[in-house]
């Protein structure tokens, strides 16, 4: 549970590149001010494997496989506020560029019929998450409360968004902070 007066925050990356997390770190010295207000649960920065009860969950990346769905569900279950951060989480983004390709044909070509393959086999280890036939933005799988677009969103946009949210204001990003690219 959170220290008194602090909000507990969890973050993760699904089908993403961690670029949004890098942008979060890009708020630089403002991180210290942030840490006075929040403490972290599961994030790539901590060693916590599963998300516990949190005030805010921040997720980058789209949903491309079964494991992504499980993690997303865990976040939704535990976080009072769920935020989709970055183009992939908001729109499917780069991973969703595979959506016009047939998954079966893709797997077949990459693992079975690609010239030069010897004894190719489609990986079937139960530890490997199965891919979905298409990549989806978060809001198509769970209810999402807020969205921060951008690839990645700028550090200033993330800072403005989080400070608004922590202060209890509806976050508003004005010109120059809302960017889709």
């Amino acid at each position: 549970m959170a220290e008194a007066g602090k909000l507990r925050v969890a973050t993760t990356s699904l089908a993403g590149c961690f670029g949004c997390h890098m942008s979060l770190l890009d708020i630089d010295e403002r991180l210290f001010a942030l840490l006075e207000k929040v403490e972290f649960d599961r994030t790539p920065l901590t060693d916590i494997k599963h998300c516990g009860p949190c005030d805010i969950g921040i997720i980058e990346g789209g949903v491309c496989n079964a494991e992504n769905v499980e993690v997303l569900r865990e976040f939704r279950k535990n976080c009072k506020i769920l935020i989709a951060m970055g183009a992939c989480a908001v729109t499917g983004g780069l991973p969703a560029q595979r959506n016009h390709l047939d998954l079966g044909a893709c797997l077949q070509e990459v693992y079975l019929t690609e010239p030069g393959l010897v004894n190719g086999q489609i990986p079937n280890d139960p530890e490997l998450p199965l891919p979905l036939d298409q990549v989806h933005p978060l809001h198509e799988v769970v209810k999402v409360d807020y969205f921060i677009p951008g690839c990645p969103p700028s550090a200033d946009a993330i800072w403005k968004f989080l400070t608004d949210l922590i202060a209890g204001r509806t976050p508003r990003l004005g010109h120059g902070l809302i960017e889709y690219d």
Binding site: A66, D102, L103, G104, L107, Q108, I122, P123, N124, L130, P131, L132, D133, Q134
Partner: peptide, 9 residues
């Protein structure tokens, strides 16, 4: 949405 992957693996 996992049916194709199930079939292929």
């Amino acid at each position: 949405a996992l049916a194709v992957a199930r079939q292929m693996t």
